[in-house]
Design a protein around this nucleic acid. Structure first.
Lengths: 218, 218
DNA sequence: TTTTCTATGTGACATATATTACTAAATTGC
DNA sequence: GCAATTTAGTAATATATGTCACATAGAAAA
């Protein structure tokens, strides 16, 4: 990985020795869209910094029921990998490549060395904790305080922003999985949104109409 | 605060200069049981390390509905205060003294200095993030995947462990608040537990019978 | 084209939880 | 002691969501 490209993706890391260390000790991994990167129970051997694409982080229960937590976008890393790594405990979550994705894998040992050695790495880790904690709270609020119709709307908006499009290519079943509910529930609620003229439904596709975008941008 | 006492409470902090710094720059604050320490929106001016007693951390929604997240026990601190402080953002949560509680308030600035200066402080912060992330996941699992009866049982067990007693002094209303539901629901479910002979109900008190303790210890 | 598979639509019904309404018992303040 | 307040019990009903059953339509395969 070349230093100049890293600098582009990690604007807060400017220290030349840290950039050099990253490019020397970080390993590039590529994952195709849809590929499961980590599953609960699996041990994590590195801290993954997303370079291109995006990773979807999901929580699972014993029965395999899932719940979407958040996306990792370029320049971001996963707080859960940081905590699991340090404690050498298995993963608590499932990570899936949302698009074709390239990550820089930082060996745990290097992560620990750099935390002492480079202020910018320490700050990067600290910012990661902040950002992920915040997103965990958002996820918690949703399941604790919101009804499924609002959760579905927020899900659509999040996905739209992540994919930078108003046309989502997905199935009702997949949405249902990520919101921890059943396909029928999602079909029903989507139909209601269509009746309100906020979206249009097709097979494998949901078109978000401008009305809806305006509505939620407040 | 004397160094020897601190050492007792924080077994992982042994560095004499860090202990000295803690005793010099940390401010003692005392809170009576029930006292609200922080509310959402309030700015946090220090990192609170619990010395005695316990602090209950709750998430709130806009309407004032609450959800219990976890307890801070002696020797622990709050990850949310760490993140809020550094980002100088207002508190995301409500903190209430569960018992008469004594905390050591570490000024934010010192926290940041020490993170560079003392490996043991850095590790303490890192362990805090780990522990709180873990507890956030537990809270998330509960609301996302469990029904109210199981959540209530877990709540009782958590409270029992925290208070080291099999006699909980609380009202159905308070439990309902902390589980984000209504008093009637809790009364009904408690009555069911009583019918199963796992608990006995009195006014302002719940006796947990040995059967229940055994049941949940697996 | 015909068959098969996958995604979706939808009604009927089950269940968990929320809400309303009321009662009664226990405790507190006077 | 008595009135007022707090706490708890419980029935009836409402609502959101989950589950089952089945129909249909479009896409893919044969």
């Amino acid at each position: 990985m070349n230093v100049e490209a890293l600098r582009q993706i990690l604007p807060n890391i400017t220290d030349p020795s840290l950039l050099k260390a990253l490019s020397e000790h970080g390993n590039i991994h590529e994952f195709q869209a849809g590929k499961v990167i980590t599953e609960p129970g699996q041990f994590i051997k590195m801290v993954p910094v997303v370079l291109e694409g995006a990773i979807k982080i999901l929580r699972m229960d014993e029965d395999g029921k899932e719940l979407f937590l958040y996306y990792l976008e370029p320049g971001e890393t996963c707080a859960l990998s940081l905590t699991c790594c340090s404690a050498s405990r298995p993963s608590e979550i499932k990570a899936v490549a949302e698009e074709n994705t390239v990550i820089l894998g930082v060996p745990i040992q290097k992560h620990e060395e750099w935390s002492d050695q480079f202020k910018q790495w320490k700050d990067f880790v600290s910012m990661t904790y902040q950002a992920r904690f915040q997103e965990m709270l958002v996820a918690l609020d949703a399941v604790a305080f919101k009804r499924m119709d609002e959760r579905l709307m927020r899900y659509i908006v999040t996905k739209m922003k992540q994919q930078k499009t108003n046309e989502l290519h997905t199935t009702h079943q997949e949405i249902a999985n990520e919101l921890g509910t059943s396909r029928e529930v999602i079909s029903r609620l989507l139909k209601q949104l269509e009746k309100k003229k906020w979206i249009e439904l097709g097979r494998n596709v949901i078109y978000i109409r401008d009305d809806f975008e305006e509505l939620i941008s407040n």
